[in-house]
Amino acid sequence: DLSALRVEEVQNVINAMQKILECPICLELIKEPVSTKCDHIFCKFCMLKLLNQKKGPSQCPLCKNDITKRSLQESTRFSQLVEELLKIICAFQLDTGLEYANSYNFAKKENNSPEHLKDEVSIIQSMGYRNRAKRLLQSEPENPSLQETSLSVQLSNLGTVRTLRTKQRIQPQRTSVYIELGSDSSEDTVNKATYCSVGDQELLQITPQGTRDEISLDSAKKAACEFSETDVTNTEHHQPSNNDLNTTEKRAAERHPEKYQGSSVSNLHVEPCGTNTHASSLQHENSSLLLTKDRMNVEKAEF
């Protein structure tokens, strides 16, 4: 173990290094160091905050020279020094078990990766560091076993998940096959086929009936047209017969005018059967003409 005197000496050296690497504005270890034209180094955030307070150039807090945003430059070497100082402080805390008085939040800088452990060898070769390295080497064999167990647990979990997924996939297939086998029997399929065939026959029977009705309507229309044509021909046949009657009536009127007047009046009210309204109107006109002729003949006879 380190003596108290040596611990104090190391602590004083760390404090001196820390004062050199402090920012003059925030009085902390410089984060993202930036250098000016006057070779003074500050935190990048502190300098941008200072420049944004005034429009135009501002003055350096140490030498009062003008500073602009374009004049600022990043210093990589200074950032490396800060990183190495942080590593020294971490090693000091691990070796002594004491917390550094002016320690900052170094938890963000710590890294437990194997590459980081290899890099620590180049920091300080001390008894405390050696003991700590031995402890780490002793704890390393235990870690692979834990990793193997965790991997086995994960693989077993994956296997159970896969088996569950396969079961879920197989179950719908089985149910679907069961439904297909038990849903419709052979008799049901035959009945469905016969039902479809009967429906098709009914459709075939319905369509000819409609065509037959249309044919019957067409035949009825044709018969009505033929009947009207026969009526017209009958009226045409009746007209010459009426003319013959008129000639006979004229002759009778010349011989017996008194008797014919009474008979002509009675004939006005008689309509021949089986004739249309057109034929009756023609008869009325003929009878009126005959009456006028008879009157003329009677007057001539009187004179």
Rank of each mutant, 00 (worst) to 15 (best):
M296G: 09
R212T: 05
E74N: 03
E187V: 09
V121I: 03
K300N: 07
Q93C: 14
D218K: 05
K44C: 08
Y260F: 09
N143R: 05
C63H: 15
P57T: 09
D294W: 01
S113M: 01
Q53I: 10
K87L: 10
I14H: 15
N105G: 09
E254F: 14
P257D: 07
I25H: 05
L164K: 12
S264L: 06
V7T: 02
S156A: 13
D200M: 00
A16P: 15
C38Q: 15
C46S: 14
L146A: 12
H284I: 09
P144S: 08
S139A: 08
H256L: 06
T247E: 14
A252W: 02
Q147A: 09
Q125R: 08
L50E: 06
L72R: 13
Q18K: 13
S150N: 06
T166W: 01
Q205E: 00
P24K: 09
E271V: 01
K87W: 12
A279I: 07
G128N: 15
T163H: 10
K259M: 01
Y104W: 08
D39Y: 06
T149N: 09
P208Y: 00
K31A: 11
H278Y: 01
Q205A: 07
A279Y: 13
R130C: 06
E148H: 03
M296T: 12
I89E: 02
A133Y: 06
L164M: 12
L29E: 07
V10F: 10
I67M: 07
V190L: 07
F92Q: 14
H284G: 14
D66I: 06
K37I: 02
F42T: 08
I20C: 04
E202L: 00
T233K: 13
A133N: 11
T248L: 04
E226V: 01
L291Y: 14
K54S: 09
I89A: 08
I215L: 04
S139C: 07
E249H: 14
E249N: 12
L155K: 12
P272T: 08
N243Q: 14
N157E: 07
A16Y: 02
R6M: 04
I88N: 05
N157Q: 10
Q261E: 13
K134A: 08
G159V: 11
K300C: 12
K167F: 00
N15S: 09
S186N: 01
P208H: 04
Q11K: 10
N105F: 12
E202I: 00
E229I: 05
Q201H: 10
S150T: 03
K108R: 09
A279C: 05
L51D: 03
A16S: 06
S197A: 06
R295D: 07
M127W: 14
S79M: 05
N65F: 10
L81G: 14
A279H: 08
R165T: 14
S3T: 08
I215N: 13
L85N: 07
T211K: 06
K221Q: 01
S186L: 02
I88T: 13
A91G: 13
V153L: 05
E202P: 11
E140P: 13
F106M: 15
S35A: 07
D200I: 00
V232Y: 10
E258Y: 00
C90L: 11
E140A: 13
T275C: 04
V265M: 01
K221C: 00
Q154E: 07
R6V: 08
R70V: 06
L151H: 12
T149G: 12
L289M: 10
L62Q: 11
D244Q: 01
I123G: 13
V34E: 11
S264I: 03
Q11F: 10
D218P: 03
L62G: 07
I30A: 05
C225I: 04
M127Y: 13
G210Q: 04
C26L: 15
K300R: 00
L151P: 12
S156C: 07
V34F: 11
C46P: 15
V161G: 09
Q125G: 08
E202G: 04
T211Q: 15
S280N: 10
N131W: 11
T277G: 03
N157W: 15
S281N: 04
L151V: 06
D200F: 00
T163I: 00
D294P: 13
R295W: 11
K108H: 00
I215G: 15
N52G: 07
F92V: 09
Q209T: 12
D95S: 15
E83V: 09
T163W: 11
F303C: 14
S145L: 07
V82G: 04
E32A: 10
L217S: 12
C273T: 11
D218R: 01
Q125D: 04
Q18L: 12
E74M: 08
D294A: 14
L164Q: 12
R130H: 05
S263T: 07
L158R: 14
K259N: 04
Q138P: 06
T230G: 11
V177I: 00
A193S: 11
E9T: 06
M17G: 14
L158F: 02
S150M: 06
T68H: 01
E271C: 06
E115S: 09
S152D: 05
F42Q: 15
I67H: 06
I215W: 12
S152N: 13
D1I: 12
K259A: 01
I215P: 06
E99G: 09
N65L: 03
I30C: 03
N157C: 01
H284K: 13
H256T: 10
L21K: 15
H278Q: 03
E32H: 11
E202M: 00
L117S: 09
V265A: 09
L291G: 02
T68V: 02
L290M: 08
Q209Y: 01
E84A: 09
A193P: 14
F78T: 10
R162H: 01
C38F: 15
P61V: 14
E214H: 15
P33H: 10
D95R: 15
S35K: 02
S3N: 07
Q283V: 15
I20W: 10
L164A: 08
N276T: 02
C38Y: 15
K19I: 01
S139F: 04
C63Q: 15
Q201V: 07
L62D: 05
E148Y: 06
T68I: 02
K293S: 09
L94F: 08
H40N: 10
Y129R: 09
I89T: 11
T248P: 14
L21E: 15
E249G: 01
T235I: 03
S216V: 10
S241Q: 03
T163M: 02
E22Y: 05
R77L: 07
H269R: 08
S113V: 11
G128E: 09
L48Y: 03
K259P: 05
T76K: 06
Q125H: 11
S35E: 01
E271N: 03
A107S: 02
P272M: 09
M127R: 07
I67V: 05
E142R: 10
I124G: 07
L268R: 03
E32V: 10
I124H: 12
I41A: 09
N52Q: 03
E187K: 09
N15T: 13
D1N: 09
S152H: 03
T233Q: 08
A193K: 14
I20E: 01
R162T: 10
A91S: 04
D200A: 08
N157V: 05
N143W: 04
D188L: 05
L2A: 06
E236H: 00
L203Q: 10
S287R: 15
I215V: 07
D39S: 07
C225K: 15
I67S: 07
T235R: 02
L204S: 12
G159R: 12
T233D: 09
F92M: 02
E229L: 01
L94W: 01
A223F: 00
I179F: 08
L85T: 12
P272G: 04
E32G: 10
P61H: 04
Q53N: 06
G210Y: 00
L29K: 08
K192D: 07
S71W: 13
H256K: 07
S79L: 11
T277C: 05
Q239C: 04
R130A: 06
S122V: 05
Q53T: 07
L151K: 12
G159M: 04
N234V: 05
Q154L: 04
A193L: 02
L48T: 11
C46V: 15
S156P: 13
K221L: 00
L245V: 14
L137M: 13
N105V: 08
D66G: 08
R162Q: 06
P240S: 05
L151S: 11
V121T: 02
L5K: 08
S152V: 00
S122Y: 07
Q261I: 03
G159P: 12
Q138Y: 05
T76S: 01
K37M: 02
L2I: 07
R132N: 10
L5P: 12
L136M: 11
Q154Y: 01
Q168P: 07
V82F: 11
I20V: 06
